[in-house]
Nucleic acid binder design. Structure first.
Lengths: 117, 117
DNA sequence: GACCTATATTCAGATCATCTTTATATTGGC
DNA sequence: GCCAATATAAAGATGATCTGAATATAGGTC
């Protein structure tokens, strides 16, 4: 079982799951996907991208130069896709377990047959 | 928006959501709840319990002495309960977002009206 | 008797992703 | 001229977790 991901790592992979993106594009995409709740910091993002590349979870897709600024596009690798899928299932189970502990052992995602009251 | 919880913190609160427990009891409960997938380390757990107590997310319920060993029972505070509820909803949304990015924009928790195929 | 496991808690030091801040460079609005 | 958005990089601080060890009792086993 791989170590749980931290938030910026999770969101970076989630953004890239929608297709190749460059660093700044990932930042905008994460903001959009989270409804403005999550803002990736530049320092965190580029560090994470370097690390994820070294770990083989993301690959360099291509590089473009627009207006003198270099854009380096990344995409999810097969490993990265699998890691994100596995992580999202883990999050789902964790959320479910917490809800069961909080609200009683009879409330999955939504009540399968009306509330037990 | 509070900072996302780390795994041991989340599991500690989740275990206590089932009722008051002492440190070692939390460790056993987390192992049980996670189907043996998560093992809280003693150092991590007791440090987390101290921190959560200082933050007001858990309260000391009572202390018992059994066989010369002291058991300090903790329980979730109102704040702790709210924090765990909020965190579990956040995890749920994160998992959902990742799944939508991975599998397309048409697969929520379970298909609300049959699979789109 | 020596050893290991389970129970129960504590503490010191290392690790490492994230956070903070700063730097660099271009374009466009006010 | 100044500020914001775009685009990346890098150095130093923070802090929860991990690692490993210490302490103590009870029970099982070789």
């Amino acid at each position: 079982m791989p170590k749980p991901m931290r938030e910026p790592t999770f969101w970076t992979l989630t953004a890239l799951a929608g297709g190749p993106q460059h660093g700044y594009g990932v930042m905008r995409e994460v903001s959009r996907l989270s409804g403005g709740q999550v803002t990736l910091l530049a320092g965190t993002l580029y560090t994470a991208l370097d690390r994820l590349h070294a770990e083989g979870l993301v690959e360099v897709d291509r590089e473009e130069v627009v207006d003198g600024r270099t854009r380096r596009y990344y995409r999810l690798s097969v490993c990265g896709t699998a890691a994100l899928a596995s992580e999202s299932e883990r999050l789902q189970r964790n959320a479910q377990t917490a809800r069961q502990q909080l609200y009683g052992r009879s409330a999955p995602t939504f009540e399968p047959g009306g509330s037990p009251a």
